[in-house]
């Protein structure tokens, strides 16, 4: 598909132009952390593009708390309302290649049931994604071990690569082609193309080499003694899974206030003790041994078996967030060596 260039100084004007038609969302600094927020003021545009942002795109498609329906009782009569009104189309700028790749996984999960997750897919359909290739990977990044999406991005519409004072902009979908039709984009030269290629190669060189984790995951040892070791130190919090771009589990809860109330879903995780607690009191994953194994096996063994893709994109968020330094990359390497 077509590629063009855009001067960095034109990004603000370009986005402002888009904002007439859709919400423009980009990572901005909020105290110490960067978060994807709707941009209101394009004059003082202060996009912060860390590698990666603290939270990925999960909340954009499955908010931390999402109302499913509200009800109102009048005598014996119940009136249900659900907020299905279409939200505005939106464009998310500053998406990292790993976070976009994670959508391939969450799409597969959310489509693998009947009825399909309507709330998720409605948001997916209304979203245009503009990625930006990383230049300085974090110490915890290992995306290149998982796939080649840093060089060959997937699931996004437009991919920008930093080539000095401008971005090389590759349209990956018809939506992306429309985007680069804007007046701020200019024709790319061969030199621009080469600059983008070498920028990508430079960052890839700083990252680990590919490993066929899906193949190796087949032979993971269910009884690997490492899990007892991990369980000893794991605090059973949700830091790793709530920041993970592929984690998607939720809890359904209700909030009743007199004659009205709502049913909502909110994030939940296999690392919480009550996640698998059944109504009759049995818990099939009673200890942290089973729960630490579940996180790793789900991502590196069950997911390739079930959907044909890994449930990890190597973003490293769980590694930096874990208060006790449980490092999934190390854990997986050890499991692969142990088998």
């Amino acid at each position: 598909m077509e590629a063009k260039v855009i001067a960095k100084s034109d990004i603000g004007a370009w986005m402002k132009g888009l904002a007439d038609k859709c919400d423009v969302i980009a990572p901005v600094k909020d105290g110490d952390v960067s978060a994807f927020k709707k941009i209101e003021d394009f004059g003082t545009l202060s996009i912060d593009l860390p590698t990666p942002t603290v939270k990925g795109l999960r909340e954009q498609f499955t908010p931390e708390t999402e109302t499913l329906f509200e009800y109102k009782l009048t005598g014996q009569q119940a009136e249900l309302t659900s907020d299905t009104a279409a939200q505005k189309d939106r464009l998310i700028f500053g998406v990292r290649a790993c976070d976009a790749a994670a959508l391939k996984y969450t799409d597969a999960v959310n489509a693998n049931c009947e009825p399909k997750d309507a709330l998720y897919f409605a948001k997916r359909k209304q979203t245009t994604l503009v990625g930006v290739c990383c230049t300085t990977p974090a110490w915890s990044c290992f995306c290149t071990e998982i796939g080649d999406f840093l060089a060959n991005p997937i699931m996004m519409d437009l991919y920008l690569t930093d080539i000095g004072d401008k971005y090389y902009a590759e349209a990956l979908t018809p939506k992306g082609e429309t985007l680069i039709g804007a007046s701020q984009f200019q024709a790319a030269t061969d030199a621009d193309k080469q600059a983008a290629e070498s920028a990508k190669q430079k960052v890839i060189a700083a990252l680990p080499s590919p490993i066929d984790h899906a193949e190796k995951g087949k032979d993971f040892d269910w009884d690997d003694p490492m899990f007892t070791k991990l369980a000893e130190k794991c605090l059973a919090c949700g830091a790793c899974t709530f920041l993970c771009p592929t984690c998607h589990c939720f809890d359904i809860q209700e909030c009743a206030q007199g004659s009205k109330g709502s049913r909502y879903r909110c994030w939940d995780t296999c690392q919480f003790e009550k996640f698998t607690l059944m109504g009759h009191g049995h818990n099939p994953r009673p200890s942290k041994n089973e729960r630490t194994r579940q996180r790793v096996f789900h991502k590196f063994k069950y997911s390739p078996e079930r959907y044909g893709i890994l449930g990890c994109v190597g973003c490293g968020r769980c590694i930096t967030a874990c208060p006790v330094n449980i490092d999934i990359q190390r854990v997986v390497h050890k499991l692969e060596a142990d088998k």
């Binding site: 059973a236 919090c237 949700g238 830091a239 994030w267 995780t269 967030a321 208060p323």
Partner: peptide, 15 residues
Amino acid sequence: KEFTKCIRCYACRQA
């Protein structure tokens, strides 16, 4: 403002 950021991962409580 601070609590709006909270994702209820309970890392604070667990640690």
